[in-house]
Design a binder for these strands. Structure first.
Length: 502
RNA sequence: GUCCCCAUCGUCUAGGGGUCAGGACUCGGGAUUUUCGAUCCCGUAACAGGGGUUCGAAUCCCCUUGGGGACACCA
């Protein structure tokens, strides 16, 4: 295989869709797997739908995901510019070439005329009329006008588009890496507009020209493009260019089988039944691990195959395993539950140091603690974290004395003699020289025994007294980390305050 | 409507003529633990339907049904 060069070619017309991220990921994985080049090309040829900031949003999301292009608007490259809006002369040149060779023609039809044609066809039962062999000779174009008329129209600066001349009676056989062989009839393809009246190219022209000029070896994109492949094939043929290999990816849907849409989604915490948020930014904001999201969407339409039951993959492992041949044909449904599970799996595999670093700012803002202390806190909390930045949220008591005691836990765990035993325990641990987990445990069990109660009768009230909540890491580790002074203080406070709550 | 694509547990999927149809998430149960979490066991749950082909079909073929995509001077 020659050098692999692939591109992710989004149009900056709104938010960054999760399906787009997967397309980018597959392109990236494929490129890395083959030591190829991953290119970002911005397809901003529709200036009516252009959304300012969309490109930047896209690039920052790719950066977050760690799937940065080798060539693109930011990193440059020998095939630039990578904004199609900056390449209009190129497309015009190729459109002119097609015109010259008779593979394309001028069309002067106004949108009203086009609309009238479609309306009329509709009345005749033709729902989606095509501008093609069966109708082009009834329209106002350089096929029906004389050369003089055309030149005159051009001289008068009448708006025109350039259309692709699709031959009648042609079969197009598309060989797709994921779908196999798919056949289309030219009757089904219309004389696609190649150059719009504003001088900008349509997707089809720009795409084919750029893929060729940028020496793209494999086009990996969403299934929605499959049916326009015949037009592209025709263009390659007219230009006498070798078309790239094609791989059309299955779509991703909501749990209810509908298209993922941003419309009715407020937030990830408040999803309507059956819906899922398609906006990559929402997942970034929520605090998902990039590795987890990538891992999850990689598995939506791809798997490593027989004999490999792994679910958790690092990006490196994905690169190693990925192949287009193992991409599925059928659409997948996005399941937040599995993403959440993977997120936890990836968090558990991280180093406490990196998690500490990520929580550092928020924690320090709340209370200054040593790096070492923070890292020990993280070590205790790590496997209880659902999101990497939740340290302060689920472990506030490592940084502050509790100011409230969970009423449900008070009700369940606090008994009439709890205060008395807790004070006794407090007095006993005060005497400890080495405040280690095991020393504390020994003392606690001794105190329990002295009072003829099970250790749990002491363990739960102590946890409540020290943390204010009923859940958390192993009690003795927690107390040891907090330190004698803090623990004794909290026990005494709680012994005085909790009985008043009952 | 026309053309094209797709179809294995609720979800992601493995398997592609002979399998007890496997794994993962979820859910349920149990073990462990001082709680939560983690971990370990166990369990519920699928070849859309109908016809062929074949000794034998989830697997190959056809039809039906269902879902999806495309049918713009949007990508």
């Amino acid at each position: 295989m020659n050098q692999v060069r692939v591109r992710f070619a989004p149009s900056p017309t709104g938010f960054f869709h999760i399906g787009g991220l997967r397309t980018a990921l597959y392109n990236f994985l494929f490129a890395r797997h083959h030591q190829g080049v991953f290119i970002l090309r911005i397809e901003d040829t529709d200036r009516e739908r252009f959304v300012p900031g969309a490109t930047e949003n896209l690039q920052s999301a790719l950066r977050w995901a760690g799937i940065e292009p080798d060539e693109g608007p930011e990193q440059g490259g020998p095939y630039g510019p990578y904004f199609q809006s900056q390449r209009t002369e190129i497309y015009q040149k190729y459109a002119a070439l097609l015109l010259q060779q008779g593979h394309a023609y001028y069309a002067f039809d106004t949108s009203e005329e086009l609309e009238a044609m479609r309306q009329q066809a509709k009345q005749q039962g033709d729902f989606h009329a095509k501008y093609n062999a069966s109708r082009r000779m009834q329209m106002r174009n350089s096929l029906t006008m004389t050369a003089e008329q055309v030149n005159e129209a051009l001289a008068q600066k009448q708006p025109y588009v350039v259309r692709l001349l699709v031959p009648p009676e042609r079969k197009f056989i598309v060989n797709d890496i994921v779908r196999g062989s798919v056949t289309f009839d030219s009757r089904e393809v219309d004389d696609q507009v190649l150059l719009k009246s504003d001088g900008y190219p349509t997707y089809h022209l720009a795409n084919v020209v750029d893929d060729h000029l940028m020496e793209i070896s494999h086009v990996i994109r969403g299934e929605e493009w499959l049916s326009s492949v015949p037009k592209h094939l025709l263009l390659y043929e007219y230009f006498a260019w070798q078309p790239p290999a094609l791989a059309h990816l299955p779509l991703i849907f909501n749990p209810d089988g509908t298209k993922m849409s941003k419309r009715d989604i407020q937030s990830l915490d408040d999803l309507p039944a059956g819906k899922v948020d398609p906006d990559v930014a929402s997942y970034i904001k929520k605090g998902y691990e990039p590795a987890a999201l990538l891992n999850y969407i990689a598995l939506l339409g791809w798997n490593p195959g027989e004999g490999d039951d792994r679910q958790v993959f690092t990006v490196g492992e994905l690169i190693e395993q990925f192949s287009l041949e193992r991409v599925n044909k059928s659409a997948a449904i996005f399941d937040l539950k599995k993403l959440n599970w993977l997120n936890k799996e990836h968090i558990m595999r991280r180093s406490p140091a990196s998690l500490a670093l990520e929580n550092r700012e928020a924690v320090m803002q709340s209370v200054p603690v040593s790096e070492a202390y923070l890292e020990q806190v993280v070590a205790l909390l790590q496997e209880r974290l659902y999101f990497s930045r939740d340290v302060l949220k689920i472990g506030a008591y490592f940084f502050h004395d509790p100011d409230v005691y969970d009423p449900a836990v008070v009700r369940k765990r606090w008994e009439a003699d709890s205060a008395k035993i807790i004070l006794e325990f407090s007095a006993e641990i005060s005497k400890l020289d080495v405040f280690t987990s095991s020393a504390i445990e020994t003392v606690l069990r001794q105190v329990a025994e002295n009072n003829s109660v099970a250790a749990t009768k002491l363990i739960h009230p102590v946890r409540l007294a020290v943390t204010g909540v009923g859940v958390g890491p192993g009690l003795f580790d927690l107390l040891a980390l907090l330190g004698k002074e803090t623990v004794v203080r909290r026990l005494q406070n709680a012994a005085a305050r909790i009985p008043l709550l009952q």
